[in-house]
């Protein structure tokens, strides 16, 4: 049985966006704080810290989860993907480009979480309709856009991926 003492800081090593990363965490440290303060990965935002706003959503072993409801020590040895991993060689990925095209963000506070949710969800739901996208977005709060642009960007990116996949 693993026992981590409350007062000490413990080594947490994980794979962040494909690269090995490590830092120190007390058992009570949230994954969201570990990413931001220990690893300097500040793309993941923190809004409510009780699971409601979705700003902190990251992928843990592929699944979309709330980083604010996950302990850093629970991510030890696992794969974590954040918004920093979406672009490659300085170029935004297709989903990010669709967000830009459709004005799916204004202040950008909610955007990282929404991108990570969609990134995971579109893999298993390649042909969503608007209602399904809106149901997914119920796990996120955006105070700026009114969601219309976000829905359009998600549908657009999904369709482009399907076309690329061939008939």
């Amino acid at each position: 049985m693993k026992r981590l003492d409350r007062e000490s800081r413990h080594r947490v090593a994980l794979t962040l966006n494909g690269r090995e990363a490590n830092g120190w965490a007390e058992p009570r440290m949230l994954l969201s704080d570990f990413l931001r303060h220990e690893l300097g990965a500040t793309g993941t935002h923190v809004g409510c810290e009780h699971g409601v706003c979705g700003a902190c959503t990251v992928r843990l072993d592929g699944a979309p989860v709330r980083a604010c409801l996950t302990l850093a020590v629970q991510a030890d040895g696992r794969r974590v993907d954040t918004v920093e991993g979406l672009a490659s060689n300085g170029e935004l990925n297709d989903l990010q480009k669709a967000f830009r095209r459709h004005h799916a963000l204004q202040c950008g506070f909610c955007t990282a979480g929404i991108l990570m949710s969609l990134d995971a969800w579109l893999e298993s739901n390649p042909a969503p309709d608007e209602g399904e996208v809106r149901a997914l977005l119920s796990g996120h709060l955006c105070r700026c856009t009114g969601y219309t642009g976000i829905v359009a960007a998600a549908l657009d990116a999904a369709e482009a991926r399907r076309r690329e996949d061939g008939p």
């Binding site: 049985m1 409350r6 058992p27 009570r28 949230l30 704080d33 810290e49």
Partner: peptide, 21 residues
Amino acid sequence: MKPALFDYLRPDDEEEVLEAL
């Protein structure tokens, strides 16, 4: 807000969970 301090246990099987409880 952040949680107060706690010890963290990760049992390897159900027996260890019940023991810890």
